[in-house]
Design a protein around this nucleic acid. Structure first.
Lengths: 260, 260
DNA sequence: TATATCGCCTCACGTAACTGTAGGTTCAAG
DNA sequence: CTTGAACCTACAGTTACGTGAGGCGATATA
């Protein structure tokens, strides 16, 4: 008879890199139940338990829950269409990967932006981060409510384009916030607001604007979308900005008469 | 005075995409505490609460716990170093991505193998999966204990090479498991064992084997390493295999005399 | 007017995979 | 014989919610 090596739980924990408490837990779950010294009640782990633990860890790595693993190990046949199950997990993982990759590029872009821009208003930052976070959701929303063409225009921009747009966005909001409080008919304010609107249009591109103008979307839905995209302005700033835009619109319609 | 829009909790939940229960929870935590209708006790959310929630969600996205976020929002100064935080979040995501990519390659390789090989012993499968799972840990361990050269040889293989190796590995273990039980001096067994050893050497490459032979590693450490790499054989199979190898070694030293 | 259905409230337990801690027992060494 | 490490059980706590019970007040319909 070959002498089998036996380990106390501490020794076993060191060897496998799994904490004593976790081993207790796995025992409790019926996942890895070692032999027990009858008199002392101490757990006695064997070489075989190392194998079993490895199996458990492998299955855990594949994304199975401990409960599922326990069932698998109980099932002596253990031939649960492994290919099917693996394929399922594969697609799940691939989706997860895509999601993460998008977050990574967006965050990298934002870091770059912050390094180049220095101090940035915290509201503006939140707005940027929120955009990162909801970029996917936004795309889904738009694809559901608007034509695919606009979505293409909006999201098929190169990373440099996106960075440039974000920069422009930051600059404008910065300047606007700086001018906040001045009368809305102040020429400085008016020219900046004009630029702001102009840039917003440029951002979309003309065709997109046309399509967007034609597409009619529910009031409700638009409000829903607005809730997803937080404004970089405070309530007060926003009110002021709206007044300034209103003023601009009024004047631009009769601008021909009064461009002194 | 501008009329501010007010929402019941259900309406607010729809607008923001956050569940009612979560809003209750945030209220309970003191994270997002809305106004309350005194008579009914109903929560009344404002536009400003949308902003605040956006801020919360942004910070949550960056990986902060709700408790931390609450503290941040209480702190009126609120001067978090965003570049640092984003970088931290970024590395977290990159690690997550790597983990997922490893899982993906592991599963893809395993699926390929299963399709090409048909039935595969579950122990062998676990061994394969476990190898990929612990690839990093193994690499770290080896880099700590052995020279970097070996590590390079071992890990700088292409996916095709790895697949081919896995196949070879499966075939050999399959055949060995098939022969299990036959006497160790059986010529079939002996020739297979010889091939097994030969392949093991080929896997490492000669230089690596030489370096590995020279490097002396603690008994303890070797045991630690072995616990990390599960064998594809059962206890019994392993004993039998060891005997067969021993027999082979004995005979090969005096093979010149008896190659009939 | 009765009633059915909302929307909302609070309270409280359930989840996954552990981790922490208290208070007691067993083991190994000096 | 004592001391300290290792081990035991048992209960609680963690995060960020999900789920469900039981109840209240308002509104819509028969």
């Amino acid at each position: 008879m070959a002498e089998e090596a036996k380990y106390g739980i501490g020794e076993f924990a060191k060897r496998t890199g799994i904490s004593v408490r976790t081993l207790h837990y796995y025992d409790e779950l019926g996942l890895l139940v070692p032999e027990k010294n009858v008199s002392s009640g101490h757990r006695v782990y064997s070489e075989g338990d190392i194998r079993k633990l490895q199996k458990i860890l492998s299955l855990k790595f594949l994304g199975y829950s401990l409960e599922t693993i326990r069932e698998m190990l109980e099932d002596t046949k253990f031939s649960l269409d492994l290919v099917d199950t693996l394929s399922l997990h594969l697609t799940g993982l691939q989706e997860e990967k895509e999601r993460i990759e998008k977050s990574i590029t967006a965050i990298e872009r934002t870091i770059k932006l912050l390094k180049e821009e220095g101090e940035v208003d915290s509201l503006v930052l939140m707005s940027l981060i929120s955009n990162i976070q909801t970029e996917n959701i936004q795309k889904d929303w738009l694809q559901k409510h608007v034509s695919d063409e606009i979505v293409e225009v909006l999201f098929n921009k190169s990373e440099e384009d996106k960075l440039a747009l974000d920069k422009e966005y930051i600059h404008l909001t910065k300047e606007l916030k700086h001018l906040f409080g001045k009368p809305v008919d102040n020429p400085e304010v008016q020219s900046l607001v004009e630029r702001y609107i102009h840039e917003s249009f440029k951002f979309l591109g003309e065709e997109a604007m046309n399509i967007l103008g034609e597409a009619k979307v529910d009031e409700e839905d638009i409000k829903e979308f607005e809730a997803m995209v937080p404004s970089p302005f405070t309530k007060e700033e926003e009110e002021w900005l709206n007044q300034a835009i209103e003023y601009l619109m009024m004047n631009s319609t009769m601008s021909s008469e009064e461009d002194n």
